[in-house]
Design a protein around this nucleic acid. Sequence first.
RNA 1: GCCGAGGUGGUGAAAUUGGUAGACACUCGACACUUAAAAUGUCGUGAGCUGUUAAAGGCUCGUGCGGGUUCAAUCCCCGCCCUCGGCACCA
Length: 769
Amino acid sequence: MSYNHQAIEKKAQEKWATLDLYHTDLTDESKEPYYLLVEFPYPSGDLHSGHWYAFAVTDIYARLLRARGKNVLFPIGFDAFGLPAENAAIKHGVDPKEWTYKNIERMRAQLSSMGASFDWSKEVITCDPSYYQWTQWLFTKLFEHDLAERREAAVKWCPKDQTVLANEQVIDGCCERCGTTVEEKRLTQWFLKITDYADRLIAGLDTLPWREEIKEAQRAWIGKSEGAYLKFDLALDFQGSTLESIKVFTTRPDTIFGATYVVLAPEHALVAQLLSHVSNKSEAEGYITATKRKTERERSENKEKTGVLLEGIMAINPATKEKIPVYIADYVLASYGTGAVMAVPAHDERDHDFAVKFNLPIVETTFAEWDEIASIGGQKTTQYRLRDWLVSRQRYWGCPIPIVYDPEGKPHMIPAEHLPWLLPADVDFTPTGKSPLASSKELRERVTKIFGEGWTPEYDTLDTFVDSSWYFLRYLDPKDPHDFSDQSLMKKWMPVDRYSGGSEHTTMHLLYARFFTKALHDLALVQIDEPFIERFNRGLIMGPDGQKMSKSKGNVINPDEFVGRYGADAVRIYLAFIGPYNEPGNYPWNLDGVASMRKFLDRIVRASERVAADAASTEALQQTVARTNMKIAEDSDRFKFNTGIAALMTLLNEFETTPLLSRDVFREFVIMLAPFAPHLAEHLWEKLGGEGSVHQQTWPLATIVAAANETIVVQVNGKRRGSMTLPRDVSQEAALAASYELSSVTAALGGKSPERVIYVPNKIMNLVV
RNA sequence: GCCGAGGUGGUGAAAUUGGUAGACACUCGACACUUAAAAUGUCGUGAGCUGUUAAAGGCUCGUGCGGGUUCAAUCCCCGCCCUCGGCACCA
């Protein structure tokens, strides 16, 4: 016998909508607020298994918290700007806006079909002017406080997507989106000064109860290292030079006496000047051109050290006063430190490799004291691996940067009364490497009209990670036309209690959102300094073959098929049962898994048919119910839904040995089932004659009466020889006497009396002979 | 190379953080029901040995490998190996 999941799901979902069950009153003072956040999706159009894993399992926790009396904010929205919409526009000639909103419509329906209890009244859509107006406003605030800045820098350029990328979006030298090897260009772009917050972003981690791997990944990404600047004067073999010195960064200023040469990166600013004084100019130029042609990745893959000596130029070691040679080599990075290093081959592996290859002296040194280092011009400094966040993109479907340029080319922020600064519609999307917005006549005319002749628009749009760096604040007040959020609600609801998402966002979104929060804190726009108290990275759902799902491998699982066959509840439980949700594992989709969860649900329905109003339940069964209750509550707080479900299964197994089930006991079971299988639980609730919705019920309060009897394991020399059931907290003497009743124990003792007796009440009796 | 998290049956996993290892499931096998299949139910399912007509039961080994601490180790300590994730010519 099998129940009709389609009918049950439809009916339950309609009931919840009618009751407006998931609307959160943010001003409710009667309950404790709990902000449960899950990363909002990009509206790609179809809910895949990853979405199901993200939203359906988190929804279980939202429902549990509500049942336990919390006022739960569980919002949803769409991270709706981004490349796919634009690419669809280029490929199929559709309007990116239409494409996006059509997908959103579709995904809303799919999210409801999983039974997710989102509060849709708080929905935010980042491409909506009512949202991006405030993204723009926040950007102007950052601009006012010098945290947003336009400057020329070496930037990463994706030749396929025809746009610059943030450092974080370059993985192993390739574009994070499309995998194309990135190029380096010198361009004038907008940056947010996240490096100003590097120290605070590290320090803040200590206050957060996150898993160590997330914290470590962020620390490594920020890459703080303490050291010193040292100056190496130049000793020139020719006359009349104005060249002075080379500044280096080192984490080991104490090894200064062992510095036997100096190395500059090929892109170092001094190189051009130095080249005019060297005797091997063409050789050096040849080396530089050759290395500049290589990508950063190609350079790092080449472990063999290369370089070129600058003939005729010597540097002076400030400690030894000796003249040492100067090289250009690509093992020194222009983008880190000063782009120049003092080489200490005796104490640095890379310098050692280079010295061996170029026959340079390797001098062991005892270490210099700081006083001595300071006396030769050493200056303490801290360097970071983190770069400022490059936020301008030469793409169309993004938030327009709220900046205009005066006739002199100086940037000005667009005043608040002109926000939202609308994305123009008369645009040619074809990627040319120039911003599509430059093709908009309307935008140019708009700027002239408002600001005057000679003023020009900013044509770049913002990185979509800017949009998602503050959306959790907007959820609290999503429709406010006068402010980005509501101060009193932020005070009550922020920081987010628990944030669930993918581990791929550890060094991007998660870091950006923390930076944004700290910056807004400094601008007195938010009170909090860290946005998320708890953070859980969920795992990955793999194909049935254990490989990452991909169309080319043909191992993509469409959850809709399983939902159609077994119901949303079965899929929800399957995903929650697959493994612990508090650690990011890789879980292959088990083709039999959903069906087996449906069997479990069918067995519940069958058990419900043996519920009798007048059936009494045993005390033992009531105890099991209470223990199940505790187990689910505790495990869920640890984000372990697999063991919670196992407890429900164990309880059902026990029900099946009971001919008639008491209504009260089964009622409690249904309430405990509700977060996991919300539709079926609603159906059973109605069958039991329950009032309202099962999802309005509070969690039955577990009172566990200590069991009257406990099983005690008897060991001889640490090996299990038997067990006995004795009254709880029985004395050692009584337990010992009972142990001797067991023939297996006396046999193992072999007539000897124990030298030592270890007795752990209610657990273990160990006799040591 | 450095840093972090891990390693438990055929599979996903569990173990109150030092106290009966493998809960709960999947798979597989046998049986029952059925004309048959599906569905459902019952039993078995870490390895090896032993036991009896059949059972029940009993013994040994077993949580990546080798040591150690302890009455007792998946858990703590030392030394290796492997997997996954992050960083990586970052001075």
